[in-house]
Simulated assay, not measured.
Amino acid sequence: MDIDTSIEITENSALIVIDVQKGWHAPVFPPRNNPAAEDNIAALIDSWQAAGRPVVFVRHDSPKPDSPLRPGQEGNDLQDFVEQRRGKGTGPELLLTKTVNSAFIGTPDLRSWLDAAEIRQIVVAGIMTNWCVDTTARMGGNLGYDVIVPVDATHTFDAAGPDGQVLSADELAQATAVNLHAGGFAKVVPTAALLG
Results as ranks from 00 to 15, higher is better:
D77C: 10
D115T: 15
A26G: 01
E74V: 14
P68R: 10
S67I: 06
S112I: 11
H60E: 09
C132E: 06
P71V: 08
F57W: 12
P31V: 04
F29I: 10
P65E: 09
D61E: 13
E74L: 11
W131C: 04
N101P: 12
D80Q: 11
P54A: 00
Q73F: 13
I3N: 02
P54K: 08
D66G: 02
G23M: 11
I105R: 08
A116T: 13
D4K: 06
I41Y: 01
C132D: 10
L78P: 00
M128S: 13
G52A: 09
R120Y: 03
E74K: 11
P68F: 13
A125M: 01
G87K: 13
L15Q: 05
T10L: 13
M139F: 11
D46R: 02
A125G: 00
Q49W: 02
G72W: 11
W48V: 07
S47P: 09
E11M: 06
S13D: 03
F57A: 04
V124W: 04
F29R: 01
W113L: 05
I127C: 05
G91H: 03
Q84P: 03
L114Q: 00
N33I: 05
N12C: 04
G52M: 03
K98F: 11
I3D: 07
A14Q: 03
W113K: 02
K22A: 15
Q121L: 10
P71N: 02
I45L: 14
V17C: 06
T5D: 06
A26K: 06
S62L: 10
M128A: 12
F57P: 04
W24G: 05
V133P: 00
K88D: 01
E11R: 12
P27N: 09
G126K: 05
R85L: 07
W131M: 11
G72L: 01
E118W: 07
A116C: 03
V82W: 04
R32Y: 09
A51H: 14
R53F: 08
L114V: 14
E11K: 13
W24P: 00
L15K: 02
D115K: 14
A37M: 14
W48S: 06
D39Y: 02
E38V: 04
D66H: 09
V56N: 09
L44H: 03
A137Q: 03
L110M: 12
P92R: 14
S102R: 02
R86C: 08
I119H: 02
K88P: 01
T107L: 04
A36G: 09
E11N: 08
G141V: 06
D134L: 05
N142V: 13
W24A: 07
G91I: 12
I41A: 07
R120V: 12
A43L: 11
L95W: 08
S6Y: 05
L110I: 15
I18M: 15
E74W: 07
R85M: 09
C132W: 08
H25K: 06
W131A: 04
S6W: 02
T129M: 04
G23N: 06
N142S: 12
R32T: 06
L114R: 00
A51F: 04
Q21T: 13
A42H: 13
V133K: 01
E74M: 05
L114P: 01
V56C: 13
N101H: 15
F57Q: 02
